[in-house]
């Protein structure tokens, strides 16, 4: 693969707070290559959704990007004015949210919404837009005959497929999918993930898949970034990372996920003690050290940085 389609450098997001500031994202850097699916995994409060919001320029005030750069295909996009940002949103980067109803207007037919998106972003006439919309529906296995149906006439899984068609309609370079299948039943989840995977391969679209579910990561992604308390704990090729996780948090996360493949009533699940720290009470040094079984004295006072080998942990530091 070639140049990264998206490049994030030293991103730091800050929310001013009356007792100082909260830092939901602290010094995160990563690349998304063309056509790849990268997973962002972490528990609630890890900062994974915030990262997605920062890329697409939708951080709620009073939060703001304090430091860092976001490059989309060699164009810096973190300092754009509202109009320029709107041109990028939907056209070059689109989003898929957990609840399809937040992306669909309940009062308009899905066909209308598809056509509108296409007309806004692409230089085509109405007929051409309608043809493209029909083709888009067909791609996500929805009968184009339901072009004039309203969102409430579809099941949850079908709605999410419509949202995917909508997200792909303007031919974006990147889709940010934030827990796209969390609200769905497992059987439907598998279908939607397969579809997302297949279409992004066909269109060469890159995907940032945000999820709390290691299983979804394992099934869907090419690479994975593990977040903990607003920082990257570990980044790597999905296959390698799941086979040989290095960071104690990654290892714990994998080991505590129950597997349908094995285990029985006598299996004691591996558990990580404690919980994710709150942003206003982040531990010093490595934020994971109070929960880490292998923590060294050093970990409590010195913050590890992400190394070349893709892990931010003193256990793997040289010397």
């Amino acid at each position: 693969m070639t140049d990264p389609i998206l490049s994030v450098r030293n991103l730091r997001v800050v929310f001013p707070h009356r007792h100082g500031e909260l830092v939901p994202i602290d010094d995160i850097s990563f690349d998304v290559k063309k056509g790849e699916i990268i997973g962002f995994v972490g528990e609630s409060g890890a900062g994974k959704s915030m990262t997605g919001a920062a890329i697409i320029g939708l951080i709620d005030p009073p939060g703001y990007i304090e430091r860092g750069e976001i490059w989309l295909d060699n164009e810096r996009i973190d300092q754009l004015d509202v109009r320029a940002a709107n041109r990028i949103r939907g056209r070059r980067i689109s989003m898929v949210f957990q609840d399809p109803l937040t992306s669909l207007n309940p009062l308009r037919t899905i066909g209308d919404q598809l056509v509108e998106t296409i007309l806004t972003h692409l230089p085509v006439n109405a007929n051409e837009a309608k043809r493209k919309a029909m083709a888009g529906l067909e791609e996500v296995d929805i009968d184009p005959g339901r072009f004039n149906a309203y969102p409430h006439e579809f099941s949850g899984g079908m709605r999410q497929r419509v949202v995917i068609a909508l997200a792909l309609s303007a031919g974006p370079e990147l889709i940010i999918a934030d827990e796209p299948t969390t609200a769905l039943d497992v059987s439907v989840q598998a279908q939607v993930l397969d579809l997302l995977k297949k279409l992004c391969r066909e269109h060469g679209t890159s995907v940032i898949l945000i999820t709390h579910d290691m299983g979804v990561i394992a099934e869907t992604t090419d690479r994975v970034a593990v977040l903990y308390a607003g920082r990257l704990a570990e980044v790597g090729n999905t296959h390698e990372l799941l086979r040989r996780p290095q960071h104690p948090y990654t290892r714990g996360l994998i080991a505590s996920t129950p597997a349908v493949e094995y285990g029985d009533i006598s299996t004691e699940l591996f558990q990580i003690s404690g919980t994710m720290p709150r942003l206003d009470a982040l531990p010093s040094g490595c934020a994971f050290h109070p929960r880490c079984e292998q923590a060294l004295d050093y970990c409590a006072s010195h913050r590890p940085e992400l190394q070349q080998d893709g892990v931010a942990c003193w256990l793997y530091a040289d010397g």
């Binding site: 497992v186 059987s187 989840q189 598998a190 579910d213 290691m214 299983g215 979804v216 990561i217 394992a218 099934e219 999905t238 296959h239 799941l242 086979r243 040989r244 996780p245 290892r251 994998i254 080991a255 996920t257 597997a259 349908v260 493949e261 094995y262 591996f270």
Partner: peptide, 18 residues
């Protein structure tokens, strides 16, 4: 069978973790 098939498999990349 379909339910079991649809469950995501985290261990498919490895034979053992821990």
């Amino acid at each position: 069978r379909m339910l079991i098939r649809s469950a995501p498999r985290i261990r498919k990349h490895s034979d053992d973790v821990r």
